[in-house]
Amino acid sequence: MSDLATALVFWPSAAIMLVTGLYVFRTRSMARAGLLLLASLGIEGLVFLSLASEFLGVLQLLMMSGEMVIMVFFMVMFMADPGGLMGMDMTHDKRRSAAVAAGVAAALGAVAVATDWPGTVVTGAAPDIEQIGFEVMGRSMLSFLFAGMTILFAMVGGILLAKHGGRLGIPAPAGEPRDEEGAP
């Protein structure tokens, strides 16, 4: 891609990515928040593609769609107010979380600015698939497996805690309709 085409894809994509990312926390609806996050992270795939990182871009598009749809599904399933009709707020513990967010953003920004990025220009189809394969199946295998198992445990644990009666499986108190049977 020429420099102009790269710029024409990169800057609008990056802008939409940031704006949709911001609106994730401005909306009150779980479905909207999840889909905005999907827009933000999916468009990040276009940013990768515009930077000639073909494999990462396509993979980002594929994985984010699947993951964010699962997230929408689970959020709508577990939240008491998935449509945002009762004025729920996406932000909690505002002062401290704002401080943490500002700190993390400043640290990441400092890393991005301070890093001595390589100046080589990548053109055409980068042969990165093979390198990524050897990286994932070689040196980094243990950390990827560890991360995968951690996420799996967190998912199973989250579902167990969220289901009626919590992890002990205590039946619902009398008079309160159970989710599975109560709904007409």
Partner: peptide
Amino acid sequence: DLSTGAILFSAALAYVTPSVFMAGW
């Protein structure tokens, strides 16, 4: 004609799911 065309095919199909959900919701 990408060297990752087969993944792009799966990726494009992956956006059918959110669009059907968006239509319904």
